[in-house]
Structure formats: structure tokens, C-alpha cells
């Protein structure tokens, strides 16, 4: 292999950490979505409570879920994701459009 992508590069450590954050987010997202939808939505429809006109399960699971996930993604990216250069130590002859 010409270029090893498993070498000890500190950037890979950062990348790996961010993968775990992504997995964590998706698990949280799923639990939130599933928990509210089926937790509140499994009773007969005539016993539903309503928020802004929407059935509560739908409001929490889908609408609030979207808002919470957006805020969470924003926070995580702003505070936990690190900016790393992508090609500083690489030499390649072909112009790849770096300005």
C-alpha cells in the first residue's frame, strides 16, 4: 500500500471520536423518537392529549424531536468537533484544486 490509512495519525483519533459521537447521537435520536411515539401513542386515540393541535405523541416524537436533534447536532459540532487539515502532509503531483 502506497498510503496507509491506518498509520498513527492524530487526525484519525479525532475522526474516530467523532464517529462515536455520531453513533451516540443516532441512538439517542432513535430512543427519543421511539419512546415518545409508542410510549404516548399506544393508548386508544380517544384518550390522546393534544399540543398545538397535534396528538402529544406526534408533537414530542416528530416535531420536538426534530428541534431537539437540530440543537444537539449544532452543539456537538460546535463544541466537540475539531477542525483538522485534510491534506497538509500529503504530496501529490496532480493538481487537486487547492488554492
Amino acid at each position: 500500500m502506497k498510503h496507509d490509512i491506518f498509520s498513527k495519525d492524530p487526525r484519525y483519533k479525532i475522526a474516530r471520536k467523532e464517529v462515536w459521537i455520531g453513533i451516540g447521537l443516532v441512538i439517542f435520536n432513535f430512543i427519543w423518537w421511539y419512546g415518545f411515539a409508542y410510549g404516548l401513542g399506544s393508548v386508544p386515540a380517544n384518550q390522546y392529549s393534544y399540543i398545538f393541535g397535534f396528538p402529544a405523541w406526534f408533537f414530542y416524537s416528530c416535531i420536538l424531536g426534530l428541534i431537539v436533534m437540530s440543537l444537539l447536532v449544532f452543539t456537538v459540532v460546535k463544541f466537540f468537533f475539531k477542525e483538522v487539515p485534510f491534506d497538509e502532509d500529503e504530496i501529490d503531483g496532480e493538481g487537486r484544486g487547492v488554492k
Partner: peptide, 27 residues
């Protein structure tokens, strides 16, 4: 509700492939 299963598509792909993929693709 089912369609909201697509929400992770917005962040998951770029987080999972993420920087490693960008670096590897350049290498």
C-alpha cells in the same frame, strides 16, 4: 413518523464517514 427515520441521514453520513474518509480519499 416513519419518514422521520430519515432525520439521521442529515448528520450520520458525514459524521460516520467523516474526516477519516476525507483524508483517506485525498491520500
Amino acid at each position: 413518523l416513519l419518514s422521520m427515520a430519515q432525520l439521521p441521514a442529515g448528520y450520520f453520513v458525514l459524521m460516520i464517514l467523516g474526516k477519516k474518509f476525507a483524508i483517506a480519499a485525498r491520500k
